[in-house]
C-alpha cells in the first residue's frame, strides 16, 4: 500500500482578483520508503502540494489518503521541513529539537536526552545551548532536520529545504539527508526547483506543469545506484542522460510559466 495517495486533488484560493487554482486534479502516489522529488517552475504550486499532504491546506476537491486512511486535519504521520527558517528563535537548539517530544507529553528530562542524541547525529554535538541567531544557515537546517526526525515520522515532507544554503554546505547536507534516510527509509516528498538536486536525491522525479492549475506532467524513475554521493552521482554518465530526458519535460513548463509571467507583468 502506498504511504500517501492523492486522488484528483485540487486547491483553489479565493483571492482579491478572483479565484486562483494552485493545483488541479493531481493524482500522485508515494510508496512506502520511496524518495520522491517534485520539480517545477516557480509558482507551480509545489508548496501547496506539500501543505495538502501535511494537512495544513484543505483540498477543494479530491482526497488525500495516508496509509489508506483519508486525511482529516493535520497529518500526524508526517514531519515537515519548511523552506524558510521555522525554528523558535527564543528557544535554544536543544529546546527546539525537544519541542515536538514535549508537545507529545514526553517527560522533559527524557526529551532533552533524545534531543542531544539527535543534535549529535546531525553533527551538532555540544551546540545545544546556542540560540538560533547564534547558528549559521547550515546549522539551523541541521537543527530543523533533527527537530523533525526526533519524532520519527513515517513521512517526511521537504520544501526546498536547502535552497538558501551555499553550494558546498548544500551538497554536504544532501549527503547527510541521504545517509539519515537510508538508515530507516522514510517516505519522502521533496520539493525543489533544482532538477540536479531532484535527480541526485530521488528514487523518482515528478515534473509539475506551470501554474495556475498545475499537475504532474512527467514521472521518471531514477535508477542511479544507492548509496549515492550526490557530488559523484552528478558526474556519472547516467545522471547526464536522466537530466537531459527530464529537462525536455521541464523546459516546456518553464517556458510556459515565463510566458505567463511576461503576459501578467
Amino acid at each position: 500500500m502506498a504511504a500517501v495517495e492523492l486522488r484528483g486533488v485540487s486547491v483553489r484560493f479565493a483571492g482579491t482578483s478572483g479565484a486562483y487554482t494552485a493545483i488541479e486534479h493531481v493524482d500522485l502516489d508515494i510508496g512506502a520508503g520511496e524518495f520522491v522529488c517534485v520539480v517545477g517552475p516557480t509558482g507551480c504550486g509545489k508548496s501547496t502540494l506539500l501543505n495538502v499532504v501535511a494537512g495544513l491546506a484543505k483540498p477543494t476537491a479530491g482526497e488525500v489518503r495516508v496509509a489508506g486512511v483519508p486525511l482529516t486535519g493535520l497529518n500526524r504521520a508526517a514531519g515537515y521541513l519548511f523552506q524558510t527558517d521555522a525554528l523558535m528563535p527564543w528557544a535554544s537548539a536543544r529546546d527546539n529539537v525537544a519541542a515536538g517530544l514535549l508537545f507529545r507529553g514526553v517527560a522533559r528530562a527524557q526529551a532533552l536526552t533524545q534531543a542531544d542524541d539527535w543534535l549529535g547525529r546531525v553533527g551538532l554535538r555540544g551546540a545545544g545551548d546556542r540560540y538560533p541567531h547564534q547558528l549559521s544557515g547550515g546549522m539551523k537546517k541541521r537543527v530543523a532536520l533533527a527537530q523533525t526526525l526526533v519524532l520519527d515520522p513515517k513521512i517526511l515532507l521537504m520544501d526546498e529545504p536547502f535552497s538558501a544554503l551555499d553550494v558546498q554546505t548544500r551538497s554536504l547536507m544532501e549527503n547527510e539527508l541521504l545517509g539519515l534516510w537510508a538508515a530507516d527509509r522514510k517516505s519522502v516528498l521533496f520539493v525543489t526547483h533544482d532538477l540536479d538536486e531532484a535527480i541526485a536525491l530521488g528514487d523518482r522525479v515528478i515534473v509539475m506543469s506551470a501554474g495556475p492549475g498545475s499537475r504532474p506532467v512527467a514521472s521518471h524513475p531514477i535508477d542511479l545506484p544507492r548509496p549515492r554521493d550526490v557530488a559523484e552521482a552528478r558526474m556519472s554518465p547516467r545522471f547526464v542522460e536522466l537530466q537531459r530526458a527530464l529537462w525536455q519535460s521541464l523546459r516546456v513548463e518553464v517556458q510556459k510559466s515565463q510566458r505567463a509571467m511576461a503576459a501578467a507583468g
Partner: peptide, 12 residues
Amino acid sequence: VIVDNARMLGAS
C-alpha cells in the same frame, strides 16, 4: 511559518 512548524510538531 513558526506556528505551522509547531503545529506539525504536534502542538495543541
